[in-house]
Amino acid sequence: MQNLMQHFEIIQKTPTLYALHVSIETLFNTLHHLRYQSDFITLSQLTCTDWIEEERFELGYMLTNLERNCNLMVKCFIGRDDVTVASVVTLFPQAEVMERELHEMFGVGFEGNDTLYDFALEDWQDLPPMRREFDTLAYVQSHYDFRDGRDDNLDVKEQIKIRKAAAKSAKEAQGGA
């Protein structure tokens, strides 16, 4: 770890979790270096976070070491539209399915992975569903029916106002009489 810290700008988050930010150009080479020159030989998770207000995705490669007691998160910002990242299946075979999932859920392309077919959704034509501009509520409302008999729901704030007004006018009426 000490050795790696001299090479890379690694931040320590907790005693067993480290993070490293790299640019998209150096991503593959960094992962390659870590895979072959360090203890971090396992890819345990591939995450993607949508920072829509900054117009970028954040990819996170969660690497775990040989002893399985230390995690290093290699993170990389990528654009949101039509991006393609170099696939890491040659380094970590398990990345195949993780990349397939991100491709389906976020629309990120992975160059070099030719198994980017359907993961969980079948024939999905819409926007990739995990992108933040995908509106779940609108989707549900256009695809499913709601149960009948629930239209007598009242807005409580309105009701309080109505009641107050009624009480007031009743009082006034009393006062007038």
Partner: peptide, 27 residues
């Protein structure tokens, strides 16, 4: 494992689950 990212609001920005089955079930 869970990856969790907050964004300063009341909502969780991203929570990604890493269960044992993803790798076991595919790779």
């Amino acid at each position: 494992g869970y990856y969790m990212a907050g964004d300063g609001s009341e909502m969780i920005r991203r929570m990604q689950v890493k269960g044992p089955s993803l790798i076991h079930g595919f790779t």
